[in-house]
């Protein structure tokens, strides 16, 4: 069952008449209980796509086209009150920077309990009790004592766990996680990823994971959407995507990652050029100026279903064939 469906989402910045397009016709979907990774480099539009689902786009950013359906309901048509009811209860989000996302003046326990109280799912005392339980579930030692502390008294890894506890306490149907482990050390990252997978599976929560790290994608995602230059360029299940990427950008991105099992002290494979800023996106395929397969045809914009089969789609006129 499709839980979230985003179709043709376009987001622009700036005043009317002088608008800069940042997200350009993005479509993606998340099924109930599934983990979908939205991967891309800076400026690809992945985080804006995620923020717009929650209606959290910052000032000056406007969704100018597209539709977002959550559980069949168009989020744009919901009254602010209805949207607020959805957020935190059915739809939750965690961010990259746990420390700045938590309120420094409110105890950790109260912040975890908040969504239960706001949404009227539990009384104050009961919510606080469940918050302590949840803190224990996410692996915080001495949860009762920690619940009474302020976020500043906790380490970054612990604050990230507090955010996960706050997001998952109301057993949301969809969790949007924007680079949830990027600010953390690898040993803590491993703990947090395990925890998300475990708690997600337990509550049947679907996860939309926004990340730039292909390693994290491989370890968590069922399905992957790769973004480049404000568009989805490839979408596929994780295993076939890594084994046989169709879009040249996906293929080159996978080859460029330094891996422990490669011979050291040799030149690494690298993609020439720079990630273009939205102001400098080329006409047609956004990747064509860095692509080794590009030709005259690529000056036209390839649709996402230009290449693919079955559940796979790639926005490329000259897709890669077979394992890379």
């Amino acid at each position: 069952m499709t839980l979230l469906s985003v179709s043709d989402l376009t987001i622009e910045a700036g005043p009317p008449g002088d608008r800069l397009r940042l997200v350009d016709g993005v479509s993606l979907s998340v099924k109930a209980g599934e983990t979908v990774a939205l991967v891309g480099e800076s400026g690809s539009g992945k985080s804006l796509t995620a923020l717009s689902i929650l209606g959290l786009l910052g000032e000056g950013l406007t969704p100018t086209a597209g539709r977002i359906l959550f559980d069949g309901r168009d989020l744009a048509t919901l009254a602010p009150e209805e949207l607020r009811r959805l957020r935190g209860a059915d739809l939750a989000m965690i961010f990259q920077e746990p420390v700045s996302s938590l309120n420094p003046l409110v105890t950790v326990g109260d912040q975890v309990a908040e969504s239960l109280i706001v949404h009227g799912r539990a009384s104050g005392a009961e919510a606080r009790e469940r918050a302590v339980e949840m803190l224990k579930r996410v692996g915080i030692p001495e949860p009762a004592r920690r619940a009474r502390q302020l976020p500043t008294e906790l380490s970054g890894g612990m604050c990230q766990r507090v955010m996960i506890a706050a997001a998952l306490i109301s057993r949301p149907r969809l969790l949007i996680a924007d680079e949830p482990t990027t600010a953390l050390d690898v040993t803590i990252q491993a703990q947090i990823l395990d925890l998300l997978a475990e708690l997600g599976a337990e509550a049947g929560t679907a996860i939309l994971l926004i990340t730039h790290d292909m390693g994290v994608v491989a370890e968590t995602a069922d399905r992957v959407c790769v973004m480049y230059g404000g568009r989805v360029v490839e979408e596929a299940a994780a295993v076939p995507l890594f084994a046989a990427p169709r879009h040249p950008y996906t293929g080159m991105l996978l080859r460029t990652i330094p891996r422990l099992d490669q011979p050291p002290k040799r030149a690494l494979y690298s993609i020439a050029g720079n990630v273009p800023s939205p102001r400098d996106w080329p006409e047609g395929c956004r990747f064509r100026t860095r692509c080794t397969r590009a030709d005259a045809a690529c000056t036209a914009l390839p649709p996402l279903d230009a290449a693919g089969e079955g559940d796979r789609r790639a926005a490329c006129f000259h897709p890669l064939e077979g394992p890379q």
């Binding site: 990252q189 491993a190 390693g215 491989a218 995602a221």
Partner: peptide, 20 residues
């Protein structure tokens, strides 16, 4: 070393990770 995510989903769940 074992905490580094490996970019190969075919290994998901099969790799023995040392959990600290």
């Amino acid at each position: 070393l074992s905490a580094i995510p490996v970019p190969d989903p075919a290994l998901k769940g099969r790799r023995q990770r040392i959990r600290l």
